[in-house]
């Protein structure tokens, strides 16, 4: 009998039934048991997660009652006034104009960044920021394009709240500012200082012009909302207030230590 022929036939049939891409012999389909290499705490000693979170919830927040009301106020203002305005702004202005507006205001924001970098003794940073400002103002027609980004000078931000932090001023109680959102006593002080500092420097006469054309403030605020990615509710948790409070506090510490 033609045994070898039969076997060859069987082999060829089964081979044609299973092209190389189709696996069938792997044990448990090749499951790689990704958790096997890790070690887990026995059930009775599990505390790391809890301890870390209890520590994270310790943020000095004596004005919590007011802060929470302001958080809800900001959230509602955002939903019913701010974001609809941003949508309208997006609807009426073409994208190149919006980008130009954003670049213009962010360029203006470089004034406090330069000053604060100098104050924090970060001379290289100050040079960097100043160079950026000059490039953008001179080359970029008042900052309407953002040539510095394309030239590799990445946008950095320093504010007076950070400067105060670098000099060891504690952050003080957590605050939720109306319209502006999370802050603390130190950063609120910084915010006010930067605002007036920006007026003093009077780059391309903006302070002067905006005093006469208050609608520019409106545009600046809408642009600020347009360029801020935060959306209330995005953390999708009944504990969003706690989470924002923690993230804000930590992000500021990181910025100060950088």
């Amino acid at each position: 009998m033609t045994k070898p022929v039969l076997i060859a036939f069987i082999l060829s049939v089964s081979a044609s039934l299973s092209p190389p891409l189709w696996a069938e012999t792997l044990e448990d389909a090749g499951f790689k048991t990704p958790l096997k290499q890790l070690e887990f705490t026995p059930a009775l000693e599990q505390y790391q997660f809890e301890r870390s979170n209890f520590a994270a919830l310790q943020v000095h927040d004596p004005l919590e009652l007011v802060n929470r009301h302001l958080y809800h106020f900001n959230y509602k203002f955002d939903q019913y006034v701010f974001l609809p305005s941003v949508r309208a702004y997006r609807y009426v202005t073409p994208k190149p104009v919006r980008t130009g507006v954003s670049n213009f205001f962010s360029n203006l924001g470089q004034v406090p960044t330069s000053a604060n970098s100098l104050l924090q003794g970060k001379f290289k940073r100050a040079m960097h920021s100043t160079a950026r400002l000059l490039f953008n103002t001179i080359l970029g027609v008042g900052g309407l394009w953002d040539p510095a980004s394309k030239m590799g000078l990445v946008k950095v931000k320093e504010d007076f709240g950070q400067t105060l932090g670098v000099y060891g001023l504690p952050e003080g109680p957590y605050l939720v500012l109306p319209f502006l959102g999370p802050s603390n006593l130190r950063d609120t002080t910084g915010l006010v200082t930067d605002f007036f500092g920006e007026r003093e420097v009077n780059l391309i006469n903006y302070a002067e012009i905006s005093r006469r054309n208050p609608e520019l403030y409106g545009l600046q605020i809408i642009d600020m909302r347009y360029t801020t990615e935060l959306r209330y509710g995005q953390l999708n948790s009944p504990f969003e207030y706690e989470k924002i409070r923690y993230i804000y506090t930590k992000a500021r510490q990181l910025q100060i230590n950088e």
Partner: peptide, 29 residues
Amino acid sequence: QMANVVLPELYEGHDFYQDVFDKLARYFE
């Protein structure tokens, strides 16, 4: 289980988030 993983590098008494933030801070610095 993954939230109860043993973190061998974590010093006694340190909390996990602090450890993560310290690493990020050193990196960004």
